[in-house]
């Protein structure tokens, strides 16, 4: 029996590390967007490297957790839910990495006046991811707090929606080429999508939390 406690501890640590990777990636993502807007190219590229590395580690951790949960037939009642949470959360970090890579490859020409709205949008999306990670941690440890954090995810997702809408309105009222407008809109959508992913995971998490109640 002590073996099972040791195994549980090991997987608990892996889940914590996975969630920390996603959480920290959010802050790095936000800083990277800020670097791009201020044309700090080398810092921006460095941060892409960090997020890419975190995404790889998170992938490996997720695979290890999945394998052990199946092989050792742990948490039979919640295994499917936990695996779905981990896989969908992995999409969030993937989405952050992809967005940064789009910035790096396509180098959108963003007029300075849009910087505050891009930062506001990025901040709201990252906050929704951070609330999601806290909610997932509570799903494992403190069921009573999950719903409050899920509400926070929705709140920040809504903030991100509003910021994105405002940004897109401004983009399309500005006197620039249509192809540049569409290009900028694409980046607004890409950042906004991160909070959409976070909300999708949190919606499932709400159901999984009800299932965990005795």
């Amino acid at each position: 029996m002590p073996i099972i406690f040791k195994l549980s501890k090991n997987i608990e640590d892996q889940i914590d590390r996975f969630l920390t990777m996603v959480y920290d990636s959010g802050q790095i993502f936000q800083d990277a967007v800020s670097d791009y807007l201020r044309e700090r190219v080398s810092e921006f590229e460095k941060k892409i490297g960090i997020v890419t590395e975190y995404e790889k580690v998170a992938d490996r951790l997720r695979e290890q957790i999945e394998k052990q949960l199946y092989l050792k037939t742990l948490i039979p009642e919640n295994r499917g839910d936990v695996l779905a949470i981990l896989e969908n959360t992995d999409n969030v970090i993937d989405s952050m990495k992809s967005t940064l890579l789009y910035f790096s490859v396509e180098k959108p020409d963003i007029p300075d006046e849009f910087d505050p709205l891009f930062e506001k949008l990025t901040s709201a999306s990252v906050k929704s991811v951070e609330s999601l990670i806290k909610a997932i941690s509570c799903f494992f440890m403190d069921l009573q707090s999950v719903n409050d954090l899920i509400a926070q995810v929705s709140k920040f997702e809504e903030e991100a929606d509003q910021a994105a809408l405002m940004l897109k309105r401004k983009i399309f009222t500005k006197d620039i080429d249509l192809c540049r407008k569409i290009h900028l809109r694409y980046f607004a959508n890409s950042i906004e999508q991160i909070s959409d992913y976070a909300e999708t995971v949190s919606d499932s998490l709400a159901i999984y939390t009800i299932k965990r109640l005795v």
Binding site: M1, I4, S8, F140, V214
Partner: peptide, 28 residues
């Protein structure tokens, strides 16, 4: 038995995986 167990499981800050291990032990 139900109500104290429910309170214990839902309010104690025990990790889901640790709870699984305790449940296995308790089932034995």
């Amino acid at each position: 038995i139900y109500f104290p167990v429910k309170k214990l499981v839902e309010n104690s800050e025990v990790h889901l995986l640790r709870l699984d291990a305790y449940t296995r032990l308790s089932l034995i």
